[in-house]
């Protein structure tokens, strides 16, 4: 517990900033570098840092493995669901392709449909990437017995 006091304090300060930065990267990905893949990894890194410093039990209470499992599938379903939705929302009577976001909104001149589509599928990518990274980490870390202090 006590030997890692500095690590605990610093990571307590850093973890919220890491996660907020991850969401910034996610939602600012249209305008600057970033997007769902990077944001997913960064959010997962925040939780992994928490698990490394405070232990697996605490991390599992914060982000339960069941939620991780559902999010993994939910991301892929959201992504594919946007594709199916574009197929169904055949507004203007024209044939629409899978993942053709222009169908999502009638406002063609401002590309609103494209923006909605990109937002939604990036959200799907965020869910899948971050939860898969966490699931992989949980799978590996669940096998490791607690490290003795001399291994730090």
């Amino acid at each position: 517990m006590s030997p890692h006091l500095i690590l605990r304090v610093v990571s307590k300060l850093l973890i919220p900033i890491i996660v907020v930065f991850g969401f910034y990267v996610q939602f600012h990905g249209d305008f600057g570098p970033g997007g769902g893949f990077q944001a997913g990894v960064i959010v997962a890194v925040g939780v992994i840092l928490y698990a490394l410093i405070f232990g697996m039990e605490e991390a599992r209470r914060a982000v339960p493995p069941a939620a991780v499992r559902y999010l993994m599938a939910a991301g892929v379903l959201l992504f594919a669901g946007v594709g199916v939705a574009t197929l169904l929302m055949n507004g203007a009577g024209e044939p629409v392709n899978f993942l053709d976001y222009d169908a999502l909104h009638p406002d063609q001149s401002h590309h609103t449909g494209q923006h909605y589509g990109i937002l939604l599928i990036e959200l799907g990518v965020l869910f899948t990437v971050s939860s898969v990274m966490l699931a992989i980490f949980y799978a590996f870390a669940g096998r490791i017995p607690d490290l003795p202090d001399e291994d730090w």
């Binding site: 990905g29 249209d30 600057g32 570098p33 970033g34 590309h111 923006h115």
Partner: peptide, 8 residues
């Protein structure tokens, strides 16, 4: 698409 980041 009117998105500045071409990669996205």
């Amino acid at each position: 698409i009117a998105v500045p980041n071409i990669v996205t």
